[in-house]
Amino acid sequence: MDDSLSQSEDKIVNGWYLAAEKCPSPHYDEREQCSPQAISLLVIHNISLPPGQFGGSYISDLFLGKLDKNAHPSFKDIYQLRVSAHCLIRRDGTVIQYVSFNNRAWHAGVSSYLGKEKCNDFSIGIELEGTDDTPYTTAQYNHLARLTTVIKSNYRQIGENIVGHCDIAPERKTDPGRVFDWQRYKQLLA
């Protein structure tokens, strides 16, 4: 794992991960059903914009409500979406945080975990820049594991409740996809 982060950066203060680039999204709200102490789920997603392409600012533009509908034909259907995730991990391992972990990001949509509906209310959502069919990078696994460890030390109710978007919305979602290596990720957490 990359040890270039100082201990002072590798922590969460007021819901913000100090090692992340901050890009505050307007697409969030307060957690109505759940206090920050009751956050009990971590959801892993993937995203690429345009679909199957990596790099650039389009993911951030989407989460910030600034996606140009004319920048790519596929954006005409999504540019007005009001969505966000707490964090994005780019292909090079860069972590960008859009929403404080203490607030509710709009990442899960219609969802259920262990019979509990509205997963946004009690979860943290982490996006990986990728697709269901493109292997994730070593840097992404390393930074996801590091971020997960820091999140779990601050939000202890999460415990082992770490799932893919596909697990909480199986009729709608397939991410993080069949190429996500859950065993590799869990070994890095061990």
Rank of each mutant, 00 (worst) to 15 (best):
D3R: 13
S48H: 02
N46W: 05
T131A: 06
I124E: 04
H72N: 14
V95C: 12
S112P: 00
D29H: 05
G115R: 03
S40N: 11
R146Q: 14
N102D: 15
I47H: 01
L147F: 04
A139S: 12
W106L: 14
T149M: 09
H165Y: 04
K76W: 04
S57R: 13
T137F: 13
D133H: 14
E117V: 07
A139I: 03
C166Q: 14
S4Q: 10
K116G: 00
S48A: 12
V163C: 02
S60P: 00
T137P: 11
I44P: 03
D2V: 11
K173L: 06
H165N: 10
W106N: 10
G125T: 03
L62C: 01
G177C: 09
S40K: 14
K22S: 11
V83D: 03
R90M: 10
L81V: 00
T94L: 13
P51M: 03
G177S: 09
H86W: 01
A71S: 12
L64R: 07
V179N: 10
S84K: 05
R178H: 13
V110W: 10
H27G: 01
L64M: 12
I151A: 08
G159W: 03
A145I: 06
C23A: 15
R146V: 07
Y28N: 06
N161D: 08
L42H: 07
K69H: 10
V150I: 14
Q80C: 06
C23V: 12
I126P: 00
R184F: 02
D133R: 15
E117R: 15
F63V: 00
